[in-house]
């Protein structure tokens, strides 16, 4: 196992392995530290952080759908001050990279949070322009390629750390938004955020989620993630962090072969708190089984076909 290389590199930042967490599914890492050895993860990607504390949406905030789940949490978070004071020092005590997810209602808010976090000891910032559950900001920035490019270049001015633009799958052509993020100066892109969905409670004849609409995640969306990562990888040269329905090592390998340099584990954390470590184990077992010495040899390896 010692001669197996799991290290990957994104925008000059090296990661001990390609596995991170999908924003919003892992708290700030603290919530999982009893279950997972955070030192084993390539990176922890935090829940979205905003300028001021956000209370999120009314409940019910989640609904199960077959093979997936809908959520409309609404980016509840304690705000950047508490994040920097409490959550960041906790994460710093582990030997893992830190990617902080950034949210805002306006372009200015994204820039301000980016500026604040740039002054901290974090490794990368993931700019969330694709949350489907907030009225302002979020997905509103992520569906129009011109706005994607504009906000990327704006945030980039304040970012002293490499930035990842998190893309929405709720678009006609993912290649267009991927290219727009690259044109705006993104150092990397991540995809896919959740797909918008809805569930109706037929007994009560009303929406199951208080927010009516939620974001669909889980294994049901993995084929869409694989397809979109493949399309984005063929459209841009910047690295991709892939996510969408990864439950085990084999799922993660699909996303890597489609073109992702790193893979985030999301909904699986809710089902099995130890999912991240098991995904890493699964990838290592595959590499051993197939005599692959470097994970980098697998990134986008289907692209040429």
């Amino acid at each position: 196992m010692n001669d197996m290389n799991m290290k990957v590199n994104i925008a000059g930042v090296s990661f001990k392995n390609p596995i991170t967490t999908a924003s919003g599914t892992f708290g700030s890492g603290m919530e999982y530290s009893d279950y997972v050895d955070l030192n084993r993860l390539g990176a922890v990607t935090t829940k979205g952080v905003s300028l001021v504390p956000w209370p999120g949406n009314p409940t019910p905030r989640v609904a199960e759908t077959y093979g997936g789940m809908l959520n409309a949490i609404g980016l509840q978070n304690p705000g950047v001050d508490v994040f920097i004071k409490r959550d960041l020092p906790f994460l710093k005590s582990f030997d893992t990279r830190i990617i902080v997810n950034v949210v805002g209602k306006t372009e200015e808010e994204y820039c301000e949070v980016t500026e604040r976090l740039s002054a901290c000891d974090v490794d990368m910032l993931e700019i969330n322009i694709s949350c489907p559950n907030v009225k302002e900001g979020g997905i509103a920035f992520g569906q129009d390629p011109r706005r994607v490019e504009a906000i990327t270049s704006q945030v980039k001015k304040y970012a002293k750390k490499p930035i990842i633009i998190k893309l929405s799958p709720n678009v006609t052509d993912i290649a267009e938004t991927a290219k727009a993020a690259e044109a705006g100066g993104a150092d990397a892109i991540s995809l896919i955020n959740t797909l918008t969905g809805m569930k109706i409670d037929i007994e009560r004849r009303t929406f199951l989620l208080a927010n009516k609409v939620g974001g669909l995640s889980g294994p049901a969306i993995k084929p869409i993630a694989v397809r979109m990562i493949y399309q984005a990888a063929n459209a841009v040269t910047i690295p991709i962090i892939g996510m969408g329905g990864v439950m085990d090592g084999e799922d993660a390998l699909e996303l890597i072969m489609a073109g992702a340099t790193m893979v985030a584990v999301g909904t699986a954390n809710f089902i099995n708190p130890r999912a991240t470590e098991e995904v890493i184990d699964g990838i290592e077992a595959y590499m051993l089984r197939n005599n692959i010495s470097d994970i980098n040899d697998l990134i986008g390896c289907v692209s040429g076909g």
Partner: peptide, 16 residues
């Protein structure tokens, strides 16, 4: 009681 996802305090679904 509220609809939950993770049950361990991470997802913030079941708040009051």
């Amino acid at each position: 009681e509220e609809r939950m996802a993770c049950g361990i305090g991470a997802c913030l679904a079941c708040v009051c």
